[in-house]
Write a protein that binds this DNA or RNA. Structure first.
Length: 163
DNA sequence: GCCAACGTTGGC
DNA sequence: GCCAACGTTGGC
């Protein structure tokens, strides 16, 4: 099981929106960057854990977590005429963009702001700091533990096995 | 709203 | 395949 950080603009789709979705589950559509696409398609797996990060908002922060509940499949919005995600270069037999389904897990008691992340030297090599524009980022086990601690969140038993 | 960083496009 | 122009992201 891998741990990821997915970025989203809460004005467009927030963790609350995910919580309110039917079954707390929604397709993570709209990824239009090749490296992020490659990760979604080739590395993100059903059952992986996902930290949700809110960007382009008053307090950019990690706000909670979700889990991946599907394998990658073509993002239908790329074929949807007039949709902002439409890509006229995509063909149904050769889709260009992929998505996975994610299911809401929880809000953290304490969001972890980007400012705080930057204040902590141990996060200096987080992709959030080194490659801030990548929308699908990988999180190490160690970073995950540190993030949970700063968020006041319990370690989920299934995350790493032994506590 | 500004602007720096960086990803993508397209001419050559 | 290079690289300049352009578009987008996202913190501030």
């Amino acid at each position: 099981m891998r741990i990821w950080l997915f970025k989203t603009e809460p004005d467009a789709f927030s963790l609350d929106d995910l919580q309110d979705a039917p079954d707390g589950t929604s397709g993570w559509d709209g990824v239009r960057n090749y490296q992020a696409r490659n990760r979604l398609r080739d590395e993100v797996s059903n059952g992986d854990r996902v930290l949700i990060y809110h960007s382009s908002c008053k307090v950019p922060a990690i706000v909670g977590e979700a889990e991946v509940v599907s394998d990658a499949y073509p993002d239908p919005t790329q074929f949807s005429a007039g949709h902002p995600g439409e890509d006229s270069r995509s063909r149904p037999d050769q889709p260009r963009w992929y998505q996975v389904d994610v299911r809401y897990h929880r809000h953290f008691p304490q969001p972890l702001s980007l400012a705080t992340i930057r204040d902590h030297a141990e996060f200096a090599d987080m992709e959030l700091v080194t490659r801030p524009r990548l929308s699908i980022q990988q999180i190490t086990d160690r970073q995950y533990q540190q993030i949970l601690a700063l968020c006041g969140a319990d370690e989920p038993r299934s995350a790493t096995g032994a506590a």
